[in-house]
């Protein structure tokens, strides 16, 4: 299991836009550099990218919820 951590404090989003599907679902392949979510920090959106490859397990932080820097956002199996 690998955790993907939040690089910044802010609001975490699973989806590129409210009507879109989440970036990743359980079982999806994840390559290094793939975007798995967005962090909104001070009205700026920053992509959260995987630093390791793996298989997506689940989001650990809720969609559109506040997160702290270093908090686990998602896990890879």
């Amino acid at each position: 299991m690998t955790d993907i951590l939040s690089p910044l404090p802010g609001t975490f989003y699973h989806k590129p836009s409210p009507d879109a599907a989440p970036f990743r679902a359980a079982g999806d392949a994840v390559a290094v550099g793939d975007t798995i979510g967005l962090i909104e920090v001070m009205k700026t959106f920053i992509e959260v990218q995987a630093e390791e490859a793996g298989t997506f397990a689940a989001y650990a932080a809720e969609d559109a919820g506040p997160v702290m820097a270093g908090e686990t956002l998602a896990t890879l199996a």
Binding site: L8, P9, G10, T11, E40, V41, M42, K43, P66
Partner: peptide, 11 residues
């Protein structure tokens, strides 16, 4: 001093 700027609002 010691104030943590929250990330949720403008800069």
């Amino acid at each position: 001093e010691g104030y943590q700027i929250p990330p949720f609002y403008d800069s």
